[in-house]
């Protein structure tokens, strides 16, 4: 009898807890349903229609996808440009980040100041102001050409109008913002047990050997996590492409998110843009799955070190 009373009391308590829990998370729950779940479902429907907002959506079946994959050369060009960008800019950024992190991983004085200097580009990097500045740096009368002339080199190239170089100005802008990755690597470097390096010293290993046999393997989980996360973000880069090159020249920087924006919000082809968004969603989901499948490794690593 007594036992039953306590179980019903604890059941009552649990009911109260349920109520309190849902009360606290209700803002998020509402937003999750209204601004995430329903839009995703709506987006599936839209991708099978033609819709320009003014007139009601018209069902066209798989036509958007068919047009995208087989009849729109600009689509594939934008896929190629985006992959090229993500697969060069992200590794480049991580290499720079790791190099600088290793340089700053000392107890010398002034490190905090240097760390701040290297981080500044990441603080301002996403802004329109920096994109506008970048356009001027690589412009015909810009900073890069001025420097080339200063060293007696031909400084007349129109970097942003050159189909070969335009995308590299955007890659450089991304690599310049290596600050966050640098901070994460620095934190990771500090967690590598010092004894590993000491015993390597005793074995007579040189700095290169130590780098490849200790530093890299110890950092692999962090490097990998950052590589995938930043690739996902690299696939949706938008602001610099719109401001600096506006997709040109010859669509060589017409990145996926920019092309989607032009289709959706300049041509008001909401159906086509939704179809494009769904392909992006699938690719992102695939990459996310890679993180989750391998997460046991890097999570284990963190808890083990701590």
């Amino acid at each position: 009898m007594k036992k039953r009373a306590t179980t019903s009391a604890s059941a009552g308590r649990q009911r109260l807890d349920n109520l309190a829990g849902y009360l606290f998370i209700s803002p998020w729950l509402f937003g999750f349903l209204a601004l995430t779940v329903i839009p995703i479902i709506a987006s599936i429907f839209l991708s099978f229609t033609n819709y320009d907002i003014l007139s009601p959506p018209r069902w066209v079946g798989l036509q958007n996808f068919k047009k995208m994959f087989f009849e729109d050369p600009r689509y594939w060009k934008s896929v190629r440009a985006t992959l090229y960008y993500a697969l060069t800019a992200v590794p480049l950024r991580l290499i720079v980040a790791l190099s600088v992190a290793m340089l700053l991983n000392t107890s010398r004085r002034g490190v905090a100041l240097y760390r701040a200097l290297f981080y500044v580009p990441s603080v301002v990097g996403d802004s329109v102001a920096v994109a506008v500045m970048w356009r001027q740096i690589f412009g015909g009368d810009g900073l890069v050409n001025a420097f080339l002339r200063l060293f007696g080199l031909p400084g007349k190239r129109l970097w942003l109008a050159d189909p070969q170089f335009a995308i590299w100005t955007l890659i450089l802008l991304a690599a310049w913002q290596f600050g966050s990755a640098m901070l994460i690597f620095l934190a990771g470097l500090k967690q590598i047990p010092y004894e590993l390096y000491e015993s390597a010293d005793i074995d007579g290993a040189g700095p290169v050997r130590k780098f490849f046999s200790i530093t890299i393997p110890q950092l692999t989980p962090i490097i990998f996590f950052n590589l995938v996360m930043q690739t996902i973000n690299g696939l949706i880069v938008f602001t610099p492409a719109l401001i600096i090159t506006n997709g040109g020249p010859l669509d060589t920087t017409n990145f996926y998110a920019l092309y989607l924006y032009k289709r959706g919000f300049e041509n008001f082809q909401m159906g086509y843009a939704s179809a494009m968004a769904w392909i992006l969603m699938l690719v992102t989901a695939l990459l996310t799955l890679v993180i989750f499948k391998t997460s046991s490794r890097w999570v284990f690593y963190e808890s083990e070190v701590k």
Binding site: L35, T36, P39, I40, L46, I236, L260, A273, L280
Partner: peptide, 12 residues
């Protein structure tokens, strides 16, 4: 992890 592009059209 959801790309904002997929949400922005229905939201808009």
């Amino acid at each position: 992890m959801i790309p904002p592009q997929i949400l922005i059209i229905p939201q808009y």
